[in-house]
Amino acid sequence: MSESALKPGVRAGRDGGLGWGLKIVVGLIGLLLIAPTAVVIPMSFSSGTTFQFPPEGWSLRWYESFFTSERWMRSLLTSVQIGLLVAVTATVLGVAVAFGLNRAGFRGRGAIRSLMLAPLIVPSIVVAVAIYGVFLKWQLNGTALGYVVAHTVMALPFVVTVMSTSLAGYDRTLDTAAATLGATAWTTFFRITVPLVAPGVLSGFVFAFVMSLDEVVIALFLQTPDIQTLPVQMYNSITLEIDPTIAAASSLMVVATSIVLLMPQFVRRKRSTS
């Protein structure tokens, strides 16, 4: 009701509300959000061997270096493998938690919810050092298990949040309706519940994967010469050696995440126009 009452006001405010001054300011802020990162793309086509920007000549040598270097390829593979394992684990655990919090009544739900969000709140350097400390004792440093467990801890808040939001909009009367129409519990689950929560589960999965693929602080502490993730390899290529291959790696990451993020926008638009 308030929505429809507001709409004319919003329309009217469209011209009067945003003055030219504000429009310019907003445009500049938008530029500040996007432009700095975009410089990695021209940089990746540089022909020079330094980080000089703008580059003096152009080439594809850093892409070639990225795709032919054993070290870069191995770190990419490591990151993707860890990311997929993290996405699966965090999604299974996170979806279960969201269901538990949504459907069960028990004491301390608020505490559990806070616990699930805590990894986002505690300073990341403190989490990294704390995990590093116990992993040294448990000999989990530089092991796939160590990375997966640590990243799952960091990915859980995202999955739980996105699933909780999805479940909050779930109309439970649909379950009852299915049951009154004679559906068994299993049928209801697979025909009603699964399709309804699938988008939430899928975005939880994607976010967990992207989070793990991007995580660098914990990974820096857990790294060994044998096992390094892509962000750690990127970090080392700035600090230990000046290796412009990082520009190619950055550009690929930027393009990949942009596609993943923009995809739902285009799908949504297409769906709404067709």
Binding site: V92, L93, G94, A96, V97, F99, G100, L101, N102, R103, A104, G105, F106, I112, L115, M116, A118, P119, V122, V126, V127, V129, A130, I131, G133, V134, V149, A150, T152, V153, L156, V160, R172
Partner: peptide, 30 residues
């Protein structure tokens, strides 16, 4: 007034255990 399934409460256990062992314990330890 909807009945809440108590069984669903068990769903939170795996993730809670994971966080206790790999998040809370390390923090407490440091």
């Amino acid at each position: 007034g909807r009945p809440r399934r108590r069984a669903a409460g068990w769903f939170i256990l795996p993730a809670t255990a994971l966080l206790l062992v790999f998040f809370c314990y390390p923090l407490g330890n440091i």
